[in-house]
Design a protein around this nucleic acid. Structure first.
Lengths: 140, 140
DNA sequence: CTCGTAATGCAAAAGATTCTCATCTCTCTT
DNA sequence: AAGAGAGATGAGAATCTTTTGCATTACGAG
């Protein structure tokens, strides 16, 4: 059960934390903002404050349970960390997000970091483009 | 002179815009936030409002004169666009930023976007790591 | 040089995230 | 199972970044 994940992170197993983790696992939209989580909880009838959502999400991030992304738009989005690393492609027109993972790029990044005297710890790669989704606005 | 750059962007050549562009060209810290620009202008005795700094920076971005980056930390940073695209390596300990450009990665990105049915428009690649700078804190 | 439009400054607004603090609830201990 | 203490929560205030409204001012075409 999820509870172990929370406990392992050194956090008390409380209702807000369990509910938020469950919600992330249901992973409906893969990338959700704190506000999204808050609203989804409200819709489910859970009375969890926005401040708590932010706190819990930040704690989950510190514990390595979720990853925070700074896509453009002024607010951060979170996604459950399922172990496998991946990068993102975001449609600048409709906001659709797809994930990918490319060994070639991953490898080159480590080399580049080394060439600059850095030890790579993490990275963020986001490709912005126009998707060919039929429901995507701005298509001629 | 810079004025042409501004004019070409379809903007009037006003004192705030000229001063901000000059400041970006002096490129002291390569990556500055709107707040940074505002303070630097104040120090130089220029009475330019923060709102104007934001407006001008946004216009410059739209005109392709500067690029806006969403590094982590809740605020955006801008840098003068000198034509050549490049990505960044940021030290998680001291915040130092270095730039790099790798043809292999650039190429793969286009391919990946295409594989996902996207037409790449732009991308953001940031490598986070620990630098080996002697003045970098957190070195054992 | 004069006028109309676009730009600026200020202050208020808006959006996102954090903090304060009184209250509540896990968990560990008897 | 009951109690104590540390840690967590909720509501709202506070903070920070960025945007907007509006009256005033400054470009630049004619």
């Amino acid at each position: 059960m999820d509870n172990q994940e929370i406990r392992k992170a050194g956090l008390k197993v409380t209702l807000p934390r369990v509910k938020i983790l469950e919600l992330l696992e249901a992973s409906v939209p893969r990338h959700v903002s704190a506000e999204d989580v808050y609203k989804m909880l409200l819709e489910k009838g859970e009375e969890i404050g926005l401040a708590t959502v932010y706190r819990v999400l930040t704690q989950f991030e510190a514990a390595g349970l979720v990853t925070r992304h700074n896509f453009e738009g002024g607010h951060a989005v979170f996604e459950l960390d399922r172990g496998e690393h991946h990068d993102h492609i975001v449609c600048v027109l409709c906001g659709k997000v797809e994930e990918f993972m490319d060994a070639t790029i991953e490898e080159r990044q480590k080399e580049i970091a080394a060439e600059h005297g850095f030890e790579m710890e993490d990275h963020s790669l986001i490709i912005y483009g126009r998707c060919n989704n039929s429901s995507c606005p701005g298509r001629e």
